[in-house]
Amino acid sequence: MERIFCDLRRCLACGACELACAVEHSSSKDLFQAVLEGEAPVRRREVQPAPWGNLSLACHHCESAPCIDACITGAMHREEGVVLVDQERCVGCWMCVMACPFGAITPSKLKVALKCDLCPEREGKEGRERYACVAACPTEALFAGEFAEFKRLLEEEVVRY
């Protein structure tokens, strides 16, 4: 399964991925439209400072996902490897927030757990365009693919900022 990885050395903490994520998950998919409509789009990705640079962090879609075990409604589930929240079934008990060791689940004000869903509405788009955050990253710190491919990227020298 394809996942998203972050090369911390390349991440400038510009926040473009956070914004793109929030916009992708707004109803209009347009920043200005969303703001005008009074909707505050919620990002499912967060950039954090780290010793090697910065980390753009979202759900890892864990192999053995503790959030799925913890969910009392069955809202948190897996479809073809992707860990997803069925928002209709979520009651906002935050058992998943308690379980997630990455802090990658947001308890939203709407009493629904929000997390990375690997942009289902962009399915069919190719290459870096497939995921909103990856497409928005100006330094290509975010990488979508298998871990083995990502490792090859890490072996390249990068200019330190």
Binding site: V97, M98, C100, P101
Partner: peptide, 10 residues
């Protein structure tokens, strides 16, 4: 403020 509960729990 519960956002970091999972990290601390781990």
């Amino acid at each position: 403020e519960i956002e970091n509960a999972g990290i601390i729990r781990s």
